[in-house]
Each structure stands twice: as structure tokens, then as C-alpha cells.
Design a protein around this nucleic acid. Structure first.
Length: 230
DNA sequence: ATTCCGATTGCCT
DNA sequence: GGCAATCGGAATG
């Protein structure tokens, strides 16, 4: 194989990548009305959307591949289950508000509130596919062995994107984070549901939404266990 | 005042 | 697969 042609292909590929990122960055942020719906609807619709953190050359572009919905008083697994508190108040703000909390004393988890103000629902961002800003992600996720482990968990996602508690309670507009539609720019995803991860209450509810077959999710869907043959 | 436990992760055996 | 790390909210005394 000739060096020149390989290099040319590589250059071409990186140009395609560059124009894709350009196109994504040009997309308008999802309007507030997108979040003024119940968490289950918003969660399902967020899978496959673009999540952009930072601006200009510093921006990190990702595609959301996994989220979970947390409802209000009717959901025992939700932080808002027992009503308003000093910790969960962003969940009760108008849809589009960031709720970032410390998990296990170590990791930050990022949510976006949904519904009208006063409704304690939110969607947890659990995993994303990195599209740009690779250098920054690698720097923050040194323990990750490969690209699939960069953002494949709620704590890993905030770590990789550099999201901390300072944005807690701000609207997405205020944070500078952006959620955008990716239709026409990346292949459409097939959304499937499973039970939520790591909870003990209401554990049977299928309120985890993820892109089917994506290698970037936190946990693949377990293969269907076949009945034992006798 | 004390204890328990969690919307997790990474390292150890 | 087990388990420690480490903080804050909630339950318990």
C-alpha cells in the first residue's frame, strides 16, 4: 500500500469528522418546551441527542446513549420521593434545570429536571459517545482502558466532561451546556428500555432508556437467558 | 449524637 | 465476584 493514499484517506476522514462537529455546533439548543413534559417522555427523547459542554475550541461534543427517568412522589427510588429538600430542590425547578449531586461521597451525577416548576422529576445522564474533545476527556479519565469506558457511567460522564457541582441549580442555558438534535447528522438510534441500575426501590420499573446495541452504554442488555435444556 | 445506606467506581483476589 | 473509598441525607436512639 502506498503511504500517500493512506495519508490522504486519513486526511479526508478527519475533514469529514470536522465538518460533522461544525454542523453539530451550529444546531440550536433544544427549546425549554422540550423539557416541560414528563420525565419518561423526555428521557426517551434524549437518547440520541447531542450533549455539548464548553464553548469554541474547548467544547466537548457527545451523543447521549443512556439515561434514566426519576419521577416524583410516586417513585420511591427518586431523590424527590419525600418532597422538597435542600439537596433535591433543582428537581422541582422548571424543566431544563441542572440537578448535580454527589454520589457515594465521590462521584457527581448530572440530571436535567423535567415538567413544570413544582414537579419533582428529572432525567439522569448515564452514558455518552464521545464525538470531539477527545484530548480533554482522556486527560480526565486516565483509568479508562479504551474509548468505550470514557463516559459509560453517570460518574464517569461527569468526570470526563469536567462537570462539577458549580452548575447545580442552573438552567441549561445558564450552564452553557447544550442539548441539540442530531437528526440528519448521525444515524438514528433505536431506543430500548430496561430496569434502572443500582437501585433497590421500584427496581422493576423499566425506566432506563438506552441506544440498542451501542457499545458506549454503562451496561449492555443481558442476553436473554434460555431455558435449561434437559 | 450515632448509625445506616446509597441513582458508583476502580482495584483486589 | 468482593469490597473499600467517602460524603450527606435520612432514620434511629
Amino acid at each position: 500500500m502506498e503511504k500517500g493514499s493512506a495519508k490522504s484517506r486519513e486526511q479526508n476522514a478527519s475533514q469529514v469528522e470536522y465538518s460533522l462537529i461544525e454542523a453539530i455546533l451550529k444546531r440550536s439548543p433544544l427549546p425549554e418546551s422540550f423539557f416541560l413534559k414528563d420525565a419518561l417522555t423526555v428521557a426517551r427523547q434524549l437518547v440520541g441527542k447531542g450533549l455539548i459542554v464548553g464553548t469554541g475550541k474547548q467544547s466537548i461534543v457527545t451523543e447521549i446513549v443512556e439515561v434514566e427517568a426519576y419521577l416524583g412522589v410516586a417513585d420511591p427510588a427518586s431523590h424527590s420521593h419525600r418532597g422538597l429538600s435542600s439537596r433535591n430542590w433543582p428537581m422541582f425547578e422548571a424543566g431544563g434545570t441542572c440537578y448535580i449531586y454527589l454520589s457515594y461521597g465521590i462521584h457527581y451525577c448530572m440530571n436535567v429536571s423535567t415538567g413544570e416548576k413544582g414537579v419533582g422529576e428529572a432525567v439522569l445522564f448515564r452514558a455518552a459517545r464521545p464525538i470531539s474533545g477527545i484530548e480533554q476527556i482522556v486527560e480526565r479519565r486516565k483509568s479508562a482502558k479504551n474509548v468505550y469506558e470514557w463516559l459509560n457511567g453517570p460518574g464517569k460522564l461527569t468526570a470526563g466532561l469536567g462537570v462539577g457541582p458549580s452548575k447545580n441549580g442552573q438552567t441549561f442555558f445558564e450552564t452553557g451546556f447544550r442539548l441539540v438534535d442530531l437528526s440528519g447528522l448521525v444515524p438514528p438510534v433505536e431506543v430500548v428500555t430496561t430496569a434502572r441500575i443500582g437501585i433497590t426501590k421500584a427496581a422493576e420499573k423499566p425506566w432506563r432508556f438506552l441506544a440498542r446495541h451501542s457499545p458506549y452504554v454503562s451496561r449492555a442488555i443481558p442476553a436473554r437467558k434460555l431455558p435449561t435444556q434437559v
